[in-house]
């Protein structure tokens, strides 16, 4: 959990979205939304708030884009069950572009 960020209640989840997507979020890139259980429902909730945003981190088939990382309480969902990761009970979801060195 980011320092200074109030923890979401069990009925909500705190979502942090990359500032690269500020065209969609404006200055509100950290929001609390009603708790969600799937990536699909997260995408829908975010699209309701920021129309079109889910397409930037999910492809047409609902897969996470190759160079985007989604962390659930600090853990990359690729290290969990990927797009089938259960988001129930998550306190914080962070959506960031990946960074490759070289």
């Amino acid at each position: 959990m980011k320092a200074g960020t109030a923890p979401a209640s069990s009925s909500t989840v705190h979502v942090v979205i990359s500032m690269h997507l500020k065209e969609y979020t404006g200055s509100g890139n950290e929001i609390d939304i009603d708790a969600v259980s799937t990536l699909e429902s997260l995408a829908k909730a975010l699209d309701d708030r920021f129309p079109g945003i889910s397409h930037r981190f999910l492809d047409d088939q609902g897969n996470v884009r190759r160079y985007v990382n989604i962390f659930v309480d600090g853990e990359d969902i690729r290290e969990k069950q990927g797009t089938h990761t259960d988001l129930s009970g998550a306190r914080e979801i962070v959506i960031l572009p990946s960074v490759a060195g070289g």
Binding site: E23, G52, H55, D59, D60, Q61, N63
Partner: peptide, 16 residues
């Protein structure tokens, strides 16, 4: 950016 970008339907198995 457009609000509803081009997307293939899920049943197509395709992604732009």
């Amino acid at each position: 950016n457009c609000t509803n970008p081009p997307r293939f339907p899920k049943e197509s198995g395709l992604s732009v």
